[in-house]
Simulated assay, not measured.
Amino acid sequence: MSDVERLQRKFASVVASDHRHGGQLGIEQRAVSLADEALNLQNSGSATQRVRSNLYATAASFRSSAMWAAIDGRRYHEAIGHMREAQTLAELSGDQAIKFRIWSHAGSLYRHMGRPADALAANDVARNLHITRRDPMFASLAAARQMAIHGVAQDRRSLRRSFGLAQDAMGRAEPDTFRPVWLLAFYDEAELHSLALTAYLAVGDWPTAEYHAHRCLAAFRPHMRRSRAIATSRLAHAQLAQGDADTATRTAMSVPVDAATQHARVSRMLQEFSAALRATAPGSSSTRTWTEHTAAWRATA
């Protein structure tokens, strides 16, 4: 178990790196290497069933982090490979929490790939695990991610219902319940509003998207640098879609340079913002300011 505890400390470090940087190939590779390290311990001497189960769960945790880094970096083919390996390891471990994480991530993967039917099916596996009945915080996250999928599917009624379910479950969650480090590190009211922002952007409800953007940005904890950059980029889109090019440009310019140039999802959203700004406000002072700003980004990247 001392080996397990050592690896779990490394897992906490991987989770922290993900929230600072997100989507980086180096995070994905490190997580894969640590998953292999956990599996190699299975072959070194005898171990109790408890230790073996924990080693499989730890390996599955690392693989699920590699999967998320690949999703976040838009490396979807690699993410599918990590998902399949993580699912196998999670089954060998019998750990409900890591099974939830992997299937919930699978739902997010298919959502980002534009496959809402597969996303709903994968997220339903997570929603139906026993752990969601035992701990409302897991139920809340499952409903919140379901809400984001409903946005891609253009299902406004289900979107609103899922937000209510997620909010209600979060309110019922006992604060002192033991939860895994990966859940404690990111899921809170800020993330709930961030997922609502994603959903309402997808259905084109710009004022509601902006409302949720402000709510999540006000509530993000300091370590959520990657999530803050993503939410800020989405806020800029919502503001621009409402015709406020000046405010939207100022918002987009507040995204940190490292996120704008090195994070695949943020870079893609800001490229789309550039195209939308040029289309809606060609020749404006906002467009000129944004063009100069992005040129400075590229010069420092």
Rank of each mutant, 00 (worst) to 15 (best):
S2E: 12
S2G: 00
L7A: 06
V14K: 01
V14N: 03
L25V: 14
L25T: 15
L34S: 05
A35R: 05
D36G: 06
E37K: 13
N43Q: 15
G45N: 10
A47S: 15
T48Q: 13
R50Y: 09
S53H: 14
T58G: 01
S61Q: 15
R63A: 06
A66Y: 04
A66G: 05
A66P: 01
A69E: 06
I71A: 02
R74V: 04
R75C: 07
R75I: 06
H77I: 09
A79T: 02
A79P: 02
A79F: 01
I80G: 02
A86D: 07
T88A: 06
L89N: 05
E91W: 03
L92H: 15
G94S: 12
A97H: 06
A97R: 09
K99A: 14
K99S: 15
R101V: 04
S104N: 06
H105G: 09
H105N: 15
G107V: 09
L109V: 06
L109S: 05
G114D: 06
A117Q: 11
D118I: 05
D118S: 14
L120V: 11
L120M: 15
V125D: 07
R127N: 13
R127M: 12
N128V: 00
H130E: 13
H130P: 00
I131C: 11
R133I: 00
P136Q: 09
L141M: 15
A142K: 04
A143V: 06
A144F: 04
M147D: 03
G151E: 04
Q154T: 05
D155W: 05
R157D: 01
L159A: 03
R161D: 08
S162V: 00
A166T: 03
D168K: 13
M170N: 07
R172Y: 03
E174P: 00
P175I: 08
T177M: 07
W182I: 13
F186M: 11
F186H: 12
Y187N: 03
Y187H: 03
Y187G: 03
D188W: 03
L192E: 01
L192M: 01
H193D: 08
H193R: 08
A196K: 10
A196W: 09
A196Q: 06
L197E: 01
A199S: 07
Y200T: 02
A202S: 12
V203W: 08
W206G: 00
P207L: 14
T208I: 04
E210L: 07
Y211T: 11
A213C: 09
C216R: 02
A219K: 12
F220C: 02
F220T: 02
P222D: 12
H223T: 10
M224S: 11
R228N: 00
I230Y: 04
A231S: 14
A231Y: 11
A231P: 00
A238V: 06
Q239D: 11
Q239M: 13
A241K: 10
Q242D: 10
Q242E: 13
D244Y: 13
D246W: 10
A248R: 04
R250A: 06
V255W: 12
V255H: 13
D258N: 10
A259D: 10
R268S: 11
Q271H: 13
F273N: 02
R278A: 08
A279S: 07
T280Q: 15
A281N: 07
P282G: 07
G283D: 06
S285T: 13
S286F: 04
R288E: 13
W297Y: 15
W297D: 12
A299Y: 11
T300A: 15
